[in-house]
């Protein structure tokens, strides 16, 4: 298999915590511009896979490549973020004592060293970009509110907005619709489809209704490796998948 046209390439990745194999010989390939949905029961290793890609966890073995050539196991979180991988956490993690606008400001693509930040002065271009993102994630009315005062769903959106501000090539989105109403869920699916027109996206989600809305290739993980892969209809009719979901 050639890595060259992939945005993400995992091959034979394993990691264990105190002898427990959370990821077991996992291989996964994502093409440039592709959106992929990842499903799997609790503890399947979905979040751990994202930890490995973003440099939070080092794999015990296996290859992890970004953009065909960059070996992610050699870089740390900040480096990987700067290369163009953005991540939304399972538990929404925003800067609670900052306003919505400042959350985006801190995430804006740009230099990440101390002195530019000290003398930074917002530009018109930056303000316009923030306006755009606020419009995209529907938080214009809340821009001056503290992030702590947002609803759970709004925090999820703010976090997606922070990802967009980073302008990444690849977005890793962990359970974006947990705690959302049906209308919000549909809205989020629309937003992610929109984003995937210009970027590669990996979405982890349990909500099958939402996964159907996304209408993309699905990978089912189980006990740290790929159980089944294909269209949602194919995967959900796969006997092993049914067994894993019902057998719990």
């Amino acid at each position: 298999m050639t890595k060259n046209h992939t945005i993400l390439y995992l091959d034979g990745v394993s990691v264990s915590f105190d002898g427990f194999k959370a990821i077991n010989n996992l291989s996964l390939v994502l093409d440039k511009g592709e959106m992929r949905a990842i499903i799997g029961p609790n503890g399947a290793g979905k979040t751990t896979m994202m930890d490995i890609i973003t440099g939070k966890t080092r794999p015990d073995e296996g290859e992890v490549f970004f953009d065909g050539t960059i070996d992610l196991t050699r870089h740390d979180e900040a480096d990987i973020a700067m290369m163009g991988i953005g991540r939304k956490f399972q538990k929404p993690t925003v800067f609670e004592s900052h306003t919505v606008e400042d959350n985006l400001l801190l995430s804006m693509k740009g230099p990440r060293s101390i002195f530019p930040a000290l003398v930074h002065r917002g530009s018109i271009g930056e303000a316009r970009r923030i306006d755009e993102i606020l419009a995209t994630v529907r938080l214009e009315a809340r821009r001056a509110d503290l992030a702590a005062n947002l609803s759970h769903g709004q925090k999820q959106w703010l976090e997606i907005g922070m990802l967009l501000a980073q302008d990444p090539k690849l977005l890793l989105v962990d359970e974006p619709v947990a705690g959302m109403t049906d209308a919000e869920t549909e809205e989020t699916a629309r937003l992610l489809r929109e984003i995937s027109k210009t970027r590669s996206v990996v979405v982890v989600e349990h909500d099958m209704h939402f996964v159907r809305e996304l209408d993309v290739k699905v990978t089912c993980l189980h006990e740290g490796s790929v159980l089944s892969e294909g269209s949602l209809d194919f995967v959900s009719s796969d006997e092993r998948v049914v067994e894993v979901y019902l057998g719990r």
Binding site: A78, T93, V94
Partner: peptide, 23 residues
Amino acid sequence: SKLGKLMVAVRDAESRTRFIGWR
């Protein structure tokens, strides 16, 4: 300054700042 905002961000959610590229 923006750095001051970043300090508060580090205070409240240090690891989040790493994943958006800060050190």
